[in-house]
Computed example of a mutant assay.
Amino acid sequence: MEDQKNHSSLSIIIPAKNEGVALNAILPRLRQILPRAEIIVVNDGSSDDTESICRAHDVVLLSHPYSVGNGAAIKSGARIAKGKILVFMDADGQHHPEDIQTLTAQLEKGYDMAVGARSRQSQATIGRSIANTIYNLLASWMVGRKIDDLTSGFRAVDAEIFRDFLYLLPNGFSYPTTITMSFFRAGYRVSYVPIHASPRHGKSHIRIVLDGLRFLTIIFKIGTLYSPLKLFLPISLGFFMLGLGYYAYTFLSFGRFTNMSGLLFTTSLLIFLIGLVSEQITMLLYRGTGKK
């Protein structure tokens, strides 16, 4: 009885774009495993039979008139979801409905978000695996906590907390990066659960080079929102050491202090002050979060 009660407060949100074949297999499994859960499919301007398949399986269907983006679909689903716990999963068949209860169990233990962390064997290509490793290391350095899978789209989260960050989420594919780093910044508890992801059905919508650069941009952008001094302080120290080194060289060679050394020292100070001001602004930005 308690298990059914928990399922009734669960909303499963699936952003979908031309994933009719995979949805035809996923939706019946979801309904069988979690019969009382609210299942929301956000049709992001699909041109296949995604919409008719969703109607046939009696799920909540929200359709965008044209493709807005994966992140936009996530936000649309989160706004209409009724459950206290939101589960996000891809529509391409990579994520297993059987793993949902493992994720939600982490929230019952006191975590605010549980993320399905894919193994190396689950990565689509070697290049994708290497890129995700770099993203994970960079983001872990910024937040000061180990991030096992920065870009995983399979996660369970407290609905009330998640909606506090909707305004930060981009419309594209990098919403997992943004929400993960934002949760750490606001002091929420994040758990990583090892999962195995199956090969996707159909062709991926992610463009390796363009979206890879976009992911890096998002990491640095959220890094400045998370802890600006983590970015500005090393740069400031770099300019300071350059100025100090150049001053030592000119003093030993010519016995004087040059304009270039002064410029480097001044640049170092300005970058540090910009980082300091950004840090104060960041604290104001997150002042309303961290409450539960």
Rank of each mutant, 00 (worst) to 15 (best):
L166K: 00
R79L: 09
R120L: 14
I179S: 04
N171Q: 08
W141I: 15
R155S: 10
L137W: 06
T180H: 09
I161H: 07
L138N: 01
T125M: 02
Q106R: 09
G172N: 15
A159M: 05
I126W: 10
R55L: 12
Y188V: 00
Y188F: 06
V190M: 00
N136G: 08
D149T: 05
L150D: 13
T102C: 04
F165R: 08
A159S: 15
A78R: 00
C54Y: 06
I85G: 02
F154W: 10
K82H: 09
K75W: 01
R128L: 03
H95P: 04
S119D: 06
G83P: 02
T125K: 02
F183P: 06
R145F: 06
H57Q: 12
A156D: 10
G127W: 03
M181L: 11
G172E: 13
A81K: 06
Y188Q: 01
D164S: 06
G77D: 02
L103K: 07
D112T: 12
Y175M: 02
A72F: 13
F88D: 00
D90Q: 05
A105H: 12
I147M: 09
S174K: 05
L103D: 07
V143Y: 00
G127S: 15
A78F: 02
S174L: 13
L168Y: 05
V157F: 01
T102M: 09
S140N: 08
S191Y: 05
V115G: 04
G127Q: 11
A159V: 11
L168Q: 05
I130G: 00
Y188L: 02
R79V: 10
G116D: 13
T125I: 11
L61M: 03
G69A: 05
